[in-house]
Design a protein around this nucleic acid. Structure first.
Lengths: 179, 179
DNA sequence: ATTTTCAGTCAATATAGCTGACCTATATGG
DNA sequence: CCATATAGGTCAGCTATATTGACTGAAAAT
């Protein structure tokens, strides 16, 4: 409130009506609440195991790309090696994640989920899936497509490239090669 | 848009085709990368000022609801009083946020942005706005509507109620009372 | 043989959250 | 009026997630 009227871009231009300030502030609200509640389910499970969101992210991306190297994982997560190792080392020690020496480059550690890792990731996934399925059902297929396009638009170049790669190699239809 | 045609539901198996596992894992990826890059801009500005995301959230929601009480803010943010005060107290001491005694209940502290707070929030908003505007423009109005519906679907009941209220009192058109 | 890269480690620091205990000021209700 | 409940603040201590910088060892590349 407080006087001010902070320059709602006067919407003069054509198709820009939907880009007015209030629309964009609404986007901020949506992303804050939506992301928070999206992560709330897994967070609760992880807390019971003495883990946090960072562990989930590692399990998720290792599950998504079995055989991923530590370096690639660092690139995806956008954190430092030290930060990653604080969650990765315990996950390995506790038997959730396996390391294998790289074939072409033996310095590399190829990461994959051990059975307990697969199970935990699955449990976290299913909790999150319930949230997403409910939202997707309510919103409908057209909205889902719009959601995907907007989220993609928020991502930086690197993240988009990663999404392109994952969509190529893990197409709708499941982990197996496309039908 | 990037190849791929992300599975606009091929209409084959009724309305469930778009809820297959891979689609849902894609949603996890989208939310992780999208949210991270959405917050990256403000994070960089805040870091220069020795602040973090928590400060931004306070500035955002106080700006959104001037005169909000501490208790209401706690409810929105979903954190403890102690956590809030660790960022709120410095924001007040540094002149970004004003406190006024509640009129009907003098125990309440009604929060609002002081001019420096308005300016900083504006700066953070504009950085984030650029990201959102780019995504919205790329995706188009229909996609934006879908994005909103899905994000809303991810939110819990309380958050939805808050969104309903904000949409009533701050309708498209700007912070001023409805036309 | 030197240099670079991949991975891991140690130490120190900062932010953002948490619990529990306790305080003041003000409202509210018997 | 007094007792209790509520709004807000504060102290102390804990955890999780991130950071930087410095350094190591092994293997690849030149």
């Amino acid at each position: 409130m407080r006087a001010a009227e902070p320059a709602s871009p006067p919407a003069a231009g054509l198709q820009h009506l939907f880009l007015r300030e209030e629309e964009l502030r609404l986007a901020q609200d949506l992303l804050f609440f939506g992301y928070r509640d999206f992560t709330a389910g897994p967070d609760a499970i992880l807390a019971e195991l003495g883990m946090g969101r960072a562990h989930h992210r590692v399990l998720h991306f290792v599950g998504r790309r079995p055989g991923i190297t530590v370096g690639e994982l660092l690139g995806i997560l956008g954190i430092t090696k030290q930060s990653l190792n604080r969650v990765l080392t315990p996950l390995i020690e506790q038997g959730y994640i396996l390391q294998a020496q790289g074939r072409s480059d033996r310095r590399q550690r190829l990461l994959s989920l051990a059975p307990p890792g697969t199970a935990l990731e699955r449990r976290l996934f299913e909790r999150q899936r319930d949230t997403v399925v409910a939202a997707y059902r309510e919103a409908g297929p057209t909205a889902v497509d719009g959601f995907r396009r907007v989220m993609r638009g928020l991502m930086n170049r690197e993240a988009r490239a990663w999404m392109d790669r994952i969509e190529e190699t893990a197409p709708p239809g499941g982990p197996a090669r496309r039908a």
